[in-house]
């Protein structure tokens, strides 16, 4: 469960073409990153997959079924944590599941404990740090019943050190609950560290420019980023992103 196929999706807003013939797949239990410059239509791609935007052309399939324009088929974690300020951590975590039925409280409790947030179950979002909010948001998407999780630059608002912690934390949680993940980022290192495959998008309109398979073993470690293989890979990806991209290492 959780095989996503994006088949030749094209979308334009008025005269501006945003997505051009974008095709990609996420296999069951696979972690795929979509890498592209900021504002390159990554979010639009997500909205198409999430059913908020109808593509002009092309289709979305999930587990072989056509889900183009259908909402609620993916679990979603936005760039801003989008936690509900009037809900405690506990009730926030259950929200995604609530929308589709009765939440599994035992699973939720276990997940919160695994994330080290047990003490904060009754806390409100404003009482948490940035990293903790993202954790809660990720647990919420894990507890949602959908088999595919889409993460939209979830760590881009965090500082460098917290981000590294969060990346490794994400992997450790994912290791035990292997959902299919589509991860959008504009950070090359992040994409390499986390993914099985990296899809590079071009800038305006977004089209798939290249695809890289990341050769590193799992579980991933931070040191992998310092190996020659990684540096070579980084160089290659950097080149693909081209000069249209003002990519910095942040």
């Amino acid at each position: 469960m959780g095989k996503l196929v994006v088949d030749a999706v094209t979308k334009a807003f008025g005269k501006q073409s945003v997505l051009k013939n974008v095709s990609l797949t996420v296999d069951e239990g696979e972690f795929v990153s979509v890498l592209g410059p900021s504002g390159s239509g990554k979010s639009t791609l997500f909205h198409v997959i999430g059913g908020l935007i109808e593509p002009d052309d092309g289709h979305i399939y999930l587990d072989g079924l056509q889900v183009t324009g259908q909402k609620g088929v993916i679990s979603y974690m936005p760039q801003s944590h989008a936690l509900f300020p009037w809900r405690t951590v506990w009730h926030n975590v259950l929200l995604g599941a609530e929308i589709h039925g009765t939440p599994d409280e035992t699973a939720a409790r276990a997940m919160i404990a695994k994330a080290g947030l047990s003490e904060y179950e009754q806390a409100y979002p404003h009482e948490l740090s940035g990293g903790m909010k993202q954790r809660v948001a990720f647990i919420r998407s894990l507890l949602s019943p959908q088999s595919l999780i889409c993460l939209d630059e979830p760590f881009s608002a965090l500082d460098e050190l917290t981000r590294l912690d969060m990346q490794l934390w994400l992997l450790s949680i994912w290791q035990t609950d292997r959902r299919s993940i589509l991860f959008v980022t504009h950070n090359i290192e992040e994409a390499i560290l986390l993914s099985d495959r990296v899809v590079v998008l071009s800038d305006k309109p977004a089209a798939v420019k290249a695809e890289f398979t990341i050769p590193f073993e799992r579980p991933r470690r931070r040191e992998m980023l310092l190996t020659d293989t990684c540096l070579a890979l980084k160089k290659q990806i950097y080149k693909e992103l081209g000069d249209a991209d003002d990519q910095t290492t942040h």
Binding site: L52, G72, I74, Y76, A82, L95, I99, S144
Partner: peptide, 14 residues
């Protein structure tokens, strides 16, 4: 209503 929250709810299929 906060746009991000609305957006999340829409994506989640509310």
């Amino acid at each position: 209503t906060d746009r991000d929250l609305k957006h999340y709810m829409a994506m989640a299929g509310a």
